[in-house]
Amino acid sequence: MTNLVTLSNVTYKRNLKIIIDHLNLQLPQNNIIGLLGANGAGKTTLMRLISGVVPNYKGTIRIGTATTNTARKQVASFSQILTGVQPNARLTEIANYCDTLYSDFSIDVFEKIIASLDLDGTEKLSALSKGNRMKCVLAVTLARRVSLYLLDEPFDGIDSMTRKRLIKSMLTWKPDNATILISDHHVEDIANILDQVVILKHQMVISQKSAEEIREKDGLSIETYYENIYEGGVDHDQSHDNL
């Protein structure tokens, strides 16, 4: 398997507090990878680091051939994309804005996704319910045609029917060979679509394993595996077998 993303020895501190500590991680291309960890484990920070929006960190982060923050912003689509967008903007205006900002943005894909999710492009962002806002975030993020998608809690606080539709959109619109890194509080919601799980604890990656292997070799659900690792402590599983 070809690696798309490589983080070597990445450390990040904010206000003298260590958020990410000498982290090493490799993500293959054409995979859907679940990023798991308790609140404060560093999931969002890790995604921000990879996406290229964090200015001061130590170590190297590479997506394909892109190593600088500027270069990585061009090849990764991050779900915090709507941060800074005018709340009273209409969805079509947001799409046009993203189209000028990102050369890889596809208005066509955006329109197809919002239509499939029953969103009305003339609506204002500020008028959307939480569920509809999540749909919009996913549509904008996936409308960029890139090799890496970073989805931070894309199903947070939405009902199970909507979640299922968002997951289907994700499966439909993921370009061949693209990788999706996705975090979710409820592991069981996304367990069926994952190739791998990466577990973050104490500012480090404490486990990275194939989802099917967890079921096949350990006989565990992803959720149980995650809970066991988390409660078992850092030294429980340092293995990165068969990746």
């Binding site: 859907i32 289907k168 499966l171 993921k174 069926n192 679509i193 190739d195």
Partner: peptide, 17 residues
């Protein structure tokens, strides 16, 4: 393959395997 992945809501790689 992609249609099967959508019908069963699973990963394309899993269907391929």
């Amino acid at each position: 393959v992609r249609q099967l992945a959508l019908d069963l809501t699973v990963n394309v790689n899993t269907i391929q395997r």
